[in-house]
Design a binder for these strands. Sequence first.
DNA 1: GTCCAGGGTGAAA
DNA 2: TTTCACCCTGGA
Length: 317
Amino acid sequence: MTTSENGTVTANSVFLPVGYVDIESTLDGGQAFRWWAEETSSNDTVVGAYRGIVGRRALRVVEADGGLIVTPVDGKDANGLSHSMIEYLGQDQDLDGFRTKFADDPCLGPALRGYSGLRVLRQDPWECLFSFITSSTSNIPRIKLNVGSAAEHLGYLVGPNPRDVTFPEPEVIAEAGEQFLRDLGFGFRAKYLVPAAEAVASGQLKLTDLREAPYAEARHELVGLYGVGEKVADCVLAFSLDKPESFIVDRHILRALHKWYDLPDKASLTYAADWARDYFGHHSALANQYMFHRERLARRASEWGGAHVKRALSEDE
DNA sequence: GTCCAGGGTGAAA
DNA sequence: TTTCACCCTGGA
């Protein structure tokens, strides 16, 4: 039994001194799709927590002063969690350099002050690829539903709850087949997922090797997959393949780039991505995530504003 | 009940 | 370069 600085009393936990991490925006902000909010009570206080899987370990994460408290929920020892969790949090990224360089940026400056604990994760490449193929014309709640149900049906149980499952190996997805995924609600994406699983399972596509490959080469490999375009490729590159120079352009990001930067009016998605990579350099993935989060919050706020606010503002935009 | 958008892609025009 | 079909789920 240990007592950490914020008074959380836990059995078998580890404190990771990784600095402030905003677990909501980082774990549940559209990078990863298998983290679920939980409340955990410690003494008299109720603390926000996220529960999910890293590698083959089911765990719970709580924010603490100067880092995170990680508690395994699989009954095993907390030792051995630290290394994989620190790696998962993308610790070797140049967050400090990014903060310094863009402190006065009109878009990123306020974002950095508003949620400075947003990180770019370093996920398992196969789960990441699967998730972002699934993301095509979908939305975050549905992606979580789809990816979660695939894991629950085909993954390996490593904890007491049904969601405490490892992500199914590509061989298992390939074996399950397209119809199975359609029956789980993946829709037309099922026909993309099975060939991708086969490519990885057969060794034709070696995802972990792409971590060592140059950005352009790795991207070219990914785009060669059926159902993987530039956008999905850049998600996988940024969130799992050590490519901080990757910049993801979707409709929201394109709007943000036009709003905050001097992007040519009729820029295509491809042009915008090239432009942003050139502008943000090796901070592209971080810049992209802060921009995405800001745009998402702004959008949510305008929805909460309700119809009368929209009517009042309808003359602009 | 209907309507619509949601971290796109591939193929045809 | 632009347009369209593709599946389906939740919210308005």
